[in-house]
Amino acid sequence: MPPAPLFTPPSELLFALAEDLPTPALVYDLPGIRAGVRAMARDIALIPDARLNLALKACHTPALLREMAALGLGCDIASPGELDLALAAGFTEVSATGPVFAGADFDLLAGHGITLDCDSLDQLDDYGGRRPGTEVGLRVRVTLPRSLEDTATFAGDSRFGVAPADPGLGEVLERHRLRVTRLHVHTGQMTPASLRYKVRYLLTVAEHLPEVRVIDLGGGFFHLYRDRAQAVAALTDAASQVADWRERTGRPVALRFEPGGALLTPYGYLVTRVRSVEEHHPVFGTRVVTLDASAWNLAPWHNRPQVLALHGAPPTGPALLAGCTLYENDFFGAVPGAARTALEVPHCRRGDRLVVTATGAYTMTNARWFNRIPPPREHLFDGERMTAADALPATAGAAR
């Protein structure tokens, strides 16, 4: 029997309670998040000593981060400000990579037992100059076979990472007496085939770095989990690769995965109110529905969400779903190369409430204040009640 899909639809009570929220509002479905995390963690556990972590860049909401930590996830951070959030949330395992880390940040991370995964030779050189003779991680740039590349991957064309064969790598490591204990890669969206390839590639690299103990495969789980049965098969194959490598080398190695969007995106619901409806735009050739929330300010990566009517299910039809800023391309559902993408939108009038799905990740971490329009208030639905989520502290990084 094939494994069940990861996504759990929300209770109707979530939408009933959302009717009373001031708009715009962003609602997170905690029962759905918990079920999805536990199911994905069970799949990852097919690989001995593997762990599911959260890419913290996908979520900066303290209440939600505490929930993820309580579910047993670790996290990956990309800045000192995200470190503050991770520590406050109670994550017991934290990894770090990003070009922003420099100078005193190296000591800050080490003070919390975090091994930085350097993503360039210059950063590695700076790190070694400040912390010679210590452990370090490497973010590795992987060149995928052409058959595994598509518009959603960043492999050999990524601006991040060190090429394992770069002749300068060994020189920097030797000069600063650095010991590489972690390898880290992120290649955008990951398929079952690219997962198998990356595990094999990084285990090969690890054979030449005798102190590597952890390999972080990154995220990109939307494509991996298009078919959960195929994802499980790839994870099972990865477990076999790891077991064979351990037996051949006599060394331990543990895998880490750090999705962000796949853990949270499906469980966020943006509740909005219709500001205006133009039934037929003379140039666009379709209906334009303008909301009291902005795609440009909140969801520039938002690829084809569903749009639901909060009251009932009136007939839908194609429309451009527009945001409330004075930016011409403020449209929901933009895809690469097409800022204006028609969505199936319920027939509606000024004042009606709509729900835009798939807004649980990156929405608030991408948030900008164009036109000084504030972001929506965040709320947590626990299956019975709706509560306001605590806001992001205004002084992130103050703990340092």
Rank of each mutant, 00 (worst) to 15 (best):
Y269L: 10
P393D: 11
G168R: 15
I33R: 05
R350T: 09
A4S: 14
L52A: 00
G312H: 04
P99A: 10
P192A: 09
A334T: 02
A35T: 06
Q306S: 09
V162F: 09
L310K: 06
L17K: 08
T181M: 07
P393G: 13
L209Y: 08
G129N: 13
K198F: 01
G323N: 10
N366F: 14
C348D: 06
L30M: 11
D244A: 15
S95L: 06
S79R: 06
R200N: 12
Q241P: 00
L255G: 04
P62H: 06
M40F: 11
G113K: 13
Y267L: 03
G261F: 03
R66Q: 13
V289T: 11
V271G: 08
E278L: 02
L298S: 03
A231P: 05
A334V: 00
D150F: 05
P62C: 10
C348H: 07
L224N: 09
L169D: 03
L144A: 08
A243V: 00
V214A: 08
N297R: 04
A104N: 11
V185T: 15
K198S: 13
H184D: 14
E174D: 07
P3M: 12
I373G: 02
H208Q: 15
A391V: 03
L6T: 03
F101R: 03
F106A: 10
T325M: 02
G383H: 07
H112T: 02
F284K: 14
T187M: 14
A367W: 11
A358T: 06
T115G: 06
R248T: 10
P393E: 13
M364I: 08
D20L: 08
A63N: 12
R251E: 04
D119I: 11
A89N: 03
G170K: 10
A39F: 08
F332D: 02
L354K: 08
F370Y: 15
E171H: 07
L320T: 00
I47D: 09
D126R: 15
C118P: 08
A295G: 07
K198G: 02
S95R: 12
E207D: 15
R38C: 03
L13Q: 12
F154N: 12
Y267S: 05
V199H: 09
L121R: 09
A55I: 01
E12T: 03
F7E: 10
P167L: 12
P164E: 14
V27N: 07
D126S: 13
R141K: 15
L255W: 01
L121D: 09
T363C: 15
V199P: 05
R38A: 13
P210T: 14
T290F: 08
F381I: 00
T191D: 09
L380R: 07
T97F: 06
G113T: 07
V212N: 08
P22G: 09
A206R: 05
T187Q: 15
L64F: 07
G317M: 10
Y327N: 03
G103Q: 14
R248H: 14
R377L: 05
L217P: 01
G81V: 00
D126W: 01
